[in-house]
Amino acid sequence: MAHKPTLEDVATLAGVSIATVDRVVNRRGGVRPDREGRVLAAARRLKLDRQLGRAYAHRLRVAVLIQSAVNPFHAALGRAFANLDRSYLDLNIQFLVHHLDPNRPDRIPGLIDRLARAHDGLVVASPADDGIAAALRRAAVSIPVATLATDVPGSGRHAYVGPDDVKGGRVAGELIGRFLAAAGGDVLMITGLRSMAGHRDRESGFRAVLREHFPACRLIALEESREMAQGAGDVAAAALRSHPGLKAIYLSSAGADRVVAALKAAGAPNVVFVTHELTDDRRALLQVREIHAVVDQDTSAEVQIVAEVMARLLGRLDGSAPVPLAPVRVFTPESC
């Protein structure tokens, strides 16, 4: 007959006393979080017949630092964290959303420092500069840090969860090139903030694919919206006035509804419009053919992945989780 695991076996594997194991498994409290994690990891490995996921007495708090819900993509991220399945409650991990202003990067390092002192882990979707990278390096010394949706080079983060934005930009360029066909024409790109690594990567991929495969498509301007919807609309309106023959707009950030409004006001229904992220508002615009195509990265899947990564980094799940790049998906009016 196979040996049934005992508390002594768990204690030996975890390197703690039997009394510590008893306090953890029976939820008596008073055990340091690192020891608690070792006990429960050992018990899972030994397949101890208990509901171990519910035995974590110490709650771990993970700060999630993203933009406010004014940005539809970040609103979707916030909803996805709110809708994480019950397994993270069973693991006693709480994800707490906080907001940053991407146009005030000078305030972000201090915010990171404060959140790192008060939380057990940190997930960040932020612009990138030396001060922000340094703050993340400080945080990563003591707690797990993951970047989400856009990376921060030089940050010392433990994981990046998000898309290959160079590929996303290339896909957008491929779509516009094929929509315009051999005739090509003038193209406007509207980015959010070039201080965000993801936006720079999209620009790089977009430029490269036009240069390599669609030389008749001319990128006449690249403008920042500052991650503001109205900013995107204003840039589009100005470009339509100064370039009446504009053939396509590529928007890599917020403000799709404002770009559509600018196209309508200019009487330019035939301008090709490609953007990113299949948020609810963009799905609606796509369904009525105000947008030609959307390049999407599946925010819900990204949040599930980063939550699992955090649970593993915090010792609440066993093993090291691979972090695949989020797949790039394309939606048209007939497929959304």
Score class of each variant (00 low, 15 high):
residue 1 M to K: 09
residue 2 A to H: 13
residue 3 H to T: 13
residue 4 K to E: 11
residue 5 P to G: 13
residue 6 T to H: 05
residue 8 E to I: 11
residue 10 V to K: 06
residue 12 T to A: 15
residue 12 T to S: 14
residue 13 L to W: 08
residue 16 V to E: 02
residue 16 V to C: 07
residue 22 D to R: 01
residue 23 R to C: 00
residue 26 N to S: 06
residue 27 R to N: 07
residue 31 V to W: 01
residue 31 V to C: 04
residue 33 P to I: 13
residue 34 D to S: 13
residue 35 R to P: 00
residue 35 R to S: 10
residue 36 E to Q: 07
residue 36 E to F: 04
residue 36 E to R: 05
residue 40 L to S: 06
residue 44 R to D: 07
residue 45 R to G: 14
residue 55 A to M: 11
residue 59 R to P: 04
residue 60 L to P: 01
residue 62 V to P: 01
residue 62 V to K: 05
residue 63 A to G: 12
residue 67 Q to G: 14
residue 67 Q to N: 08
residue 71 N to S: 13
residue 78 G to R: 13
residue 79 R to M: 07
residue 80 A to S: 15
residue 81 F to E: 04
residue 81 F to Q: 04
residue 81 F to A: 06
residue 90 D to Q: 12
residue 92 N to I: 02
residue 93 I to S: 09
residue 94 Q to E: 15
residue 100 L to P: 01
residue 101 D to L: 10
residue 102 P to R: 07
residue 104 R to S: 11
residue 110 G to D: 13
residue 111 L to G: 01
residue 114 R to Q: 13
residue 116 A to H: 03
residue 118 A to I: 05
residue 118 A to S: 15
residue 119 H to A: 05
residue 123 V to Y: 00
residue 126 S to R: 02
residue 126 S to L: 13
residue 130 D to P: 00
residue 137 R to K: 14
residue 140 A to T: 10
residue 140 A to K: 06
residue 142 S to C: 09
residue 144 P to M: 13
residue 145 V to E: 00
residue 146 A to K: 01
residue 147 T to V: 09
residue 147 T to I: 05
residue 148 L to R: 01
residue 163 P to T: 15
residue 169 G to Q: 09
residue 169 G to D: 05
residue 170 R to H: 06
residue 173 G to P: 05
residue 175 L to K: 00
residue 180 L to H: 03
residue 181 A to P: 01
residue 183 A to C: 00
residue 188 L to K: 05
residue 189 M to H: 10
residue 189 M to I: 06
residue 190 I to G: 02
residue 192 G to W: 09
residue 202 R to A: 09
residue 210 L to H: 04
residue 212 E to I: 02
residue 219 L to C: 05
residue 224 E to M: 10
residue 230 Q to A: 09
residue 234 D to L: 10
residue 237 A to C: 00
residue 240 L to D: 01
residue 241 R to S: 11
residue 241 R to I: 09
residue 244 P to H: 12
residue 248 A to D: 03
residue 253 S to C: 15
residue 255 G to T: 05
residue 257 D to A: 14
residue 263 L to P: 04
residue 263 L to N: 08
residue 264 K to V: 12
residue 266 A to K: 10
residue 273 F to K: 08
residue 277 E to N: 14
residue 277 E to M: 08
residue 282 R to D: 08
residue 286 L to A: 05
residue 286 L to V: 03
residue 291 I to C: 09
residue 292 H to F: 05
residue 293 A to Q: 00
residue 295 V to N: 04
residue 300 S to M: 09
residue 303 V to D: 06
residue 304 Q to W: 05
residue 304 Q to C: 07
residue 311 A to C: 12
residue 313 L to R: 13
residue 316 R to D: 10
residue 318 D to K: 02
residue 322 P to K: 04
residue 322 P to M: 07
residue 329 R to S: 07
residue 331 F to R: 03
